[in-house]
Design a protein around this nucleic acid. Structure first.
Length: 414
DNA sequence: TCTGGGGTCCTAGGACCC
DNA sequence: TCTGGGGTCCTAGGACCC
């Protein structure tokens, strides 16, 4: 079998770069990428974490995920801008349009990352390395932001390669280069080695990817189960999943939120649940799905998490049915602790055409028509056109989690 | 004036059945 | 007065990704 040729392309500090490019295009004199800056949420509504940072901000040791409070202590002059997911989606789409000219087989791995299968197209374009430079320069010129491109024979190595030169780099990581380029790296740099696994590996004396690669797989399997074998294979550059250019069916739809203030009474908790389910319901119907399973989760003011799930007697796509189930489930596991975070998730999805045919229940049919009417109005006039009156003056958003069409999902699955 | 959100997969333990 | 064991399904929690 012929070897594959895979590019992995990663937008450098995507959220920040896109915001910076947007501001320059709209007359700003300041390039956020050249000053200590970050994209971050609003601490007043308890969303105060860093989502992306500029290279100068990195020099202050500012980390993604840390609180704005902590970031500002490290760098008092840090410029912080709010996130703009609609903009990110536009930039991501523009990027994809360019890439499609080079290969029809592209897998969108997240809003700012994709894999390109260049196996059959690269020869049209000549030397792969030169082609990658060309693509990178073209994106910079036409779209105004930089990317890093990794080149290899599998997705894992291409992805590891794109991490090696940031920003604005092109790097190969073929099998014969693994020992030199990948093995000296700290083990947590390997895809799928997170904080928990790093800690365990460290206790076995494994600190680099090379040490992991040369560890005994039986030993790893005994302690880390299948995950041990997975990362051992990755450390050795063994991975061969195909570039998937068509989206894989989703398994569930979730929506969760950190509330601006702790909620500790049923009236408010129910409002939050409803606002979460509103969005889930419309996404469900938009996709033509019905759900057989509902799960609720919450985090208390002391950061303890709980979850509880239950089956619906029959799959449903009605906002109201899912909402009722969510309330029931929450009542079974919540004993009134003050809550900072609530979530609802639906799963066991099936197509909803069958449940609609089998509708014999008048109430359900009425509710279903109501859902459709509200969906249509919101699509036409915006999500705020219809709001349940119970939300007025409550301080709780009537809809949580805007619907951004086709926002690519992020994945830990190659 | 502290600590986000949306996915997927895996595992341990319990229930239940034969 | 001993105390199987295998299979399946379900669940909560935890791990990982961006």
């Amino acid at each position: 079998m012929n070897e594959q040729l895979i590019f992995h392309l990663d937008v450098n500090s995507a959220y920040l770069s896109w915001e910076a490019a947007y501001r320059l295009q709209h007359g700003s004199k300041i390039d956020l990428r050249e000053i200590p800056s970050a994209v971050g949420g609003d601490p007043a509504s308890r969303h105060g974490i860093i989502l992306a940072k500029s290279t100068p901000a990195k020099k202050f040791n500012i980390k993604t995920g840390e609180t704005l409070f902590s970031a500002r202590q490290k760098c008092p002059n840090l410029v912080i801008v709010p996130p703009n997911y609609q903009l990110y989606m536009k930039c991501s789409n523009a990027l994809l349009d360019v890439l499609k000219e080079y290969s029809p087989k592209i897998q969108r791995f997240s809003v700012d990352e994709c894999f390109m299968d260049m196996t059959h197209t690269a020869k049209l374009w000549g030397d792969p390395l030169r082609l990658a430079y060309q693509i990178k320069e073209r994106i910079k010129k036409e779209l105004g932001f930089t990317v890093s491109i990794g080149i290899s024979t599998c997705k894992l190595l291409a992805k590891m390669a794109s991490d090696l030169k940031k920003p604005d780099g092109v790097t190969t990581l073929f099998h014969e280069e693994i020992a030199e380029k990948m093995w000296p790296l700290p083990v947590e740099n390997l895809f799928m080695v997170g904080p928990a696994t790093k800690k365990k590996l460290s206790s076995y004396g494994i600190h680099t990817i090379g040490q992991l690669a040369q560890a005994n797989p039986d030993f790893l399997a005994k302690r880390l189960k299948s995950h041990g074998i997975l990362i051992w294979n990755y450390a050795n550059g063994r991975e061969n999943s195909p570039v998937r250019s068509t989206a894989i069916a989703i398994k569930g739809i979730g929506n969760s939120t950190t509330t601006p203030f702790d909620v500790d009474n049923w009236r408010e908790v129910k409002m939050v649940l409803l606002s979460l389910v509103e969005t889930i319901g419309s996404r469900l119907r938009q996709g033509g799905w019905a759900a057989g399973l509902v799960a609720v989760s919450f985090k208390t003011s002391t950061f303890e998490s709980f979850s509880h799930q239950g089956k619906l007697s029959t799959p449903a796509d009605c906002t109201n049915e899912i909402y009722q189930k969510a309330c029931e489930l929450l009542s079974e596991c919540w004993y009134g602790q003050p809550l900072r975070h609530l979530g609802v998730r639906v799963g066991e999805l099936c197509t909803n055409d069958f449940i609609q045919l089998s509708l014999l229940n008048w109430d359900r049919e009425k509710l279903s028509r109501l859902d459709k009417t509200v969906d249509a109005l919101r699509t036409k006039y915006g999500s705020k056109v219809i709001v349940r009156s119970s939300f007025l003056h409550s301080g709780i958003k009537p809809l949580t989690g805007g619907i951004i069409e086709d926002y690519p999902l992020m994945s830990s699955i190659l």
